[in-house]
């Protein structure tokens, strides 16, 4: 079995109004060095197979087809074998 962690980021060119709003909060708190806050998604799940290749393909396909939208997002993932 593998534990998958997928991180989804908005493409740099795509406006992130949430990140902008949160950064306004940072300024209110006095974190004046904080710049370019961007909000993405962190998704974790298990893949029930012993074959790492199969797990990789499944996570990639899942991320491409549903978890991210390739028009505005990029994704990255890691796999960790668990007993």
């Amino acid at each position: 079995m593998f534990k998958a962690t997928v991180i989804i980021k908005r493409r740099p060119k795509i406006l992130d109004p949430q990140g902008k709003a949160v950064e306004q909060g940072a300024k209110l708190l006095g974190f004046n060095n904080v710049k370019q806050t961007r909000i993405g998604k962190y998704i974790e799940f298990f893949v029930d197979t012993t074959d790492k290749k199969i797990a990789e393909n499944e996570v990639r396909e899942y991320s491409e087809k549903l978890l991210s939208n390739p028009i505005m997002e990029d994704f990255d993932f890691t796999l960790e074998e668990v007993k």
Binding site: I14, L15, P17, Q18, A21, N69, I71, M72
Partner: peptide
Amino acid sequence: LEIGLLPGVMIKNESL
């Protein structure tokens, strides 16, 4: 848009 019958995406309103 998500199914690809039309091009593009919808993101949050600029004003939030």
